[in-house]
């Protein structure tokens, strides 16, 4: 593990930038985030990037590594390094760049709000726990998507977001699907309207890149297909 890595890192703000090359020592069990941290702490302290937990929980360190969106804290260099030890690290796609590897994720999270990604119930803290059987189809569907950490890997990988920047995107629609299947939630109709509108779930082409790239193994493609079916049923029944 003595050979070094040739690391090309995107430097710049907004649309204006270029790749800058760095030599980083190779280490055992090295993650891509370790590489970026080495550059910032040892080679160039002006490098901007974002991370917090380093253990795949917070969803803040997603970047484009050798052309693919990945969570960098859980991506081992050994799995992604190119020929000749080349590693190209760029900011997450489909989001404006604040500086270097840090993107402005406002649009990503605004779309969660647009898709009504907020739980709305009727009970208060004085009420007893709602009892929801884990075996019901709704609870299983909600469980399948509930572990999303909001890293934006799916969003940065989605061709439809690239073609139609107003598309709600896989993460927001996945969140909406978990709430549509939450029997305690009271805003089902409003949420179905929100996700069915222009640039909503029907804009998805079912290419499945989000599902392939999701580091948590969530399948937003299935969530979006579920939304399409549920919205269609509601429209036929005149409930939309």
């Amino acid at each position: 593990m003595s050979q070094g890595l040739k690391v090309r890192i995107w430097r710049g703000s907004g649309d204006d930038g270029r790749f800058v090359e760095y030599e980083v020592p190779r280490q055992d069990s090295q993650t891509v985030l370790d590489v970026v941290t080495h550059v910032q702490r040892v080679l160039d302290p002006t490098l901007a990037y974002r991370f917090a937990c380093r253990v795949g929980m917070c969803g803040s360190c997603a970047m484009t590594v050798n052309g693919q969106a990945r969570w960098t804290c859980r991506t081992h260099v050994a799995r992604v390094v190119g020929a000749g030890g080349l590693l190209e690290i760029a900011p997450l796609a489909n989001l404006p760049v604040v500086k270097d590897l840090a993107t402005d994720m406002s649009a990503f999270f605004d779309k969660w709000a647009r898709a009504r990604g907020r739980f709305q119930g009727t009970q208060t803290r004085r009420d007893d726990f709602a009892r929801v059987s884990p075996d019901t189809p709704q609870r299983r569907a909600a469980n399948a998507g509930i572990e999303c950490i909001g890293c934006g890997v799916c969003y940065g990988s989605c061709d439809v977001v690239q073609w139609r920047p107003d598309f709600l995107g896989p993460a927001a629609l996945n969140r909406a699907w978990t709430l549509v299947n939450d029997v305690r939630d009271t805003e089902r109709t409003e949420r179905l309207r929100a996700v069915a509108g222009d640039a909503g779930c029907h804009s998805c082409h079912t290419q499945g890149t989000c599902t392939e790239r999701c580091p948590k193994g969530i399948a937003p493609t299935i969530a979006i297909a579920g939304l399409k079916r549920t919205v269609a049923r509601a429209a036929v029944k005149g409930e939309l």
Binding site: T189, R193, A196, G197, D198, A232
Partner: peptide
């Protein structure tokens, strides 16, 4: 009730998208 705002442009758009899909 859902039908109370059926004339809303957002709702019309949602229904139109759903119909186009099915």
């Amino acid at each position: 009730p859902p039908h109370a705002v059926a004339s809303d442009p957002g709702v019309r758009e949602a229904v139109a998208q759903a119909k186009a899909w099915y």
